[in-house]
Nucleic acid binder design. Sequence first.
DNA 1: TTCAATGCAAAGCTTTTGCATAAAG
DNA 2: CTTTATGCAAAAGCTTTGCATTGAA
Lengths: 137, 137
Amino acid sequence: MNTGKTYKTRQRAEIVRIMRSSGDCLTVREICERLSASGANVGETTVYRTLEKMASEGGVRRYEPGKGAAVYRLADDRRCDGHVHLRCLRCGALEHLDCAFMRRMEAHIEKEHGFTLDSGRTVLYGLCGRCGKEISQ
Amino acid sequence: MNTGKTYKTRQRAEIVRIMRSSGDCLTVREICERLSASGANVGETTVYRTLEKMASEGGVRRYEPGKGAAVYRLADDRRCDGHVHLRCLRCGALEHLDCAFMRRMEAHIEKEHGFTLDSGRTVLYGLCGRCGKEISQ
DNA sequence: TTCAATGCAAAGCTTTTGCATAAAG
DNA sequence: CTTTATGCAAAAGCTTTGCATTGAA
């Protein structure tokens, strides 16, 4: 596992500061740009390694978009935690599936299929009500 | 848009043959390996371009795992129709979630969230039992 | 003093592009 | 003949690794 200690460094503090000051998910590149824009230079490698370590400690979440670089956000940003999302393939609408049934689904997947769902990485795709109607016309 | 005509070539036929003979999702690398194993050499670039074109025509589906290379499968591969899949983020294992509970989940999403799930496009991500254990050691 | 963190350069992987050649229609 | 496809090599983009150095505890 992750046995090593974590030192408090200027770089780590700066990275956290940047991530906290921006609500959204950021790529490593974006974090570096904002760091140098604010006068705090941190090597790209350090950003990668810091985020990787924080992710293994649970401090940040990492998401893989279909294309391009991975994005990261602080795990204590609770808006999207602990539930999967549902995206409309036509209009892009995002629905947070934060309900009892979907929690039961996670339990079902764990018990019956032996998988631990990573809800942060999971997005269901479909059509929202409006787009479904518009398409069937 | 995608206006150009599509020529019938040996390479395209071979790629389709390999994908049809293997039930599951394959990476470009895997397709190339199976191609040369069966004596049919096709350049990696050609595999990329063929899959990209077929995807834009709707003939294949492309999925992005959290880590590593994208995987592709034929869109007319009926084995995987009508249910969602579950992929292990660590070892790549694919589980077909073809059970009553997951059908109820689709109904739930339709009724309670107003979305029509596109199960062919939906992949849940997590850790399979073995990888979950190995990681927590 | 010890061990983690840093940062540069270099390497790794997947994917894309340029370009000359080959093949399909 | 015209247009698409092929395949090599090279480039591109993101991420990881090697290694000497710096800095935290």
